[in-house]
Amino acid sequence: MITALDDNGTVVSWIQRTSQGSGPHTQKLADGKTIAKVSKLGPQRHKATFSLDGRVIGSVEAPAGGTPYGVTRFGGLWVVLDIDGGIASYVGRPIPTRA
């Protein structure tokens, strides 16, 4: 089970049987449109760069020696990057931002 908390205090969770891929790789995420390109930065340290329609929309790192994962979201798309480069993603309802 993956559970995440956003900056508005909203919790989202989902069951993920396994992370997709590991190590450096490229994959399509749960929304079927966003692409994650995972690169290795060092031992147990990876970075994922996300693109949509050919343009980069963000990135996240999973560093060794600290939190063993990185998490981010784009609207309703949540993404978790493990230190081994595995990706888990989930599409929930978009969370409105505060004005």
Rank of each mutant, 00 (worst) to 15 (best):
K33I: 08
A30L: 03
D82G: 09
L77D: 01
P24R: 13
R98G: 09
V60Q: 02
G58L: 06
G75S: 14
G75I: 04
A30V: 03
R45I: 06
R93V: 11
I83Y: 03
T18C: 05
Q20Y: 02
S19N: 07
V38T: 01
S59P: 04
K28N: 03
I83W: 00
Y90M: 08
P63K: 11
P94V: 10
D84A: 08
I35T: 11
G85H: 00
Y69F: 15
P24T: 12
T49Y: 05
D31L: 02
G54E: 09
I15L: 05
R45T: 07
G65P: 01
D6V: 04
P43L: 09
K37C: 11
G42D: 11
I15S: 04
P68M: 13
W78L: 10
D84G: 05
G54P: 03
T72L: 14
P94S: 13
S13T: 15
A99R: 08
V80D: 00
F50V: 01
T34R: 01
H46L: 08
A99Y: 07
K47H: 07
A48D: 01
H25P: 01
D6L: 08
A4Q: 11
H46G: 03
G86P: 01
K37F: 07
A88W: 01
S13C: 13
G9S: 12
F50Q: 01
T49Q: 10
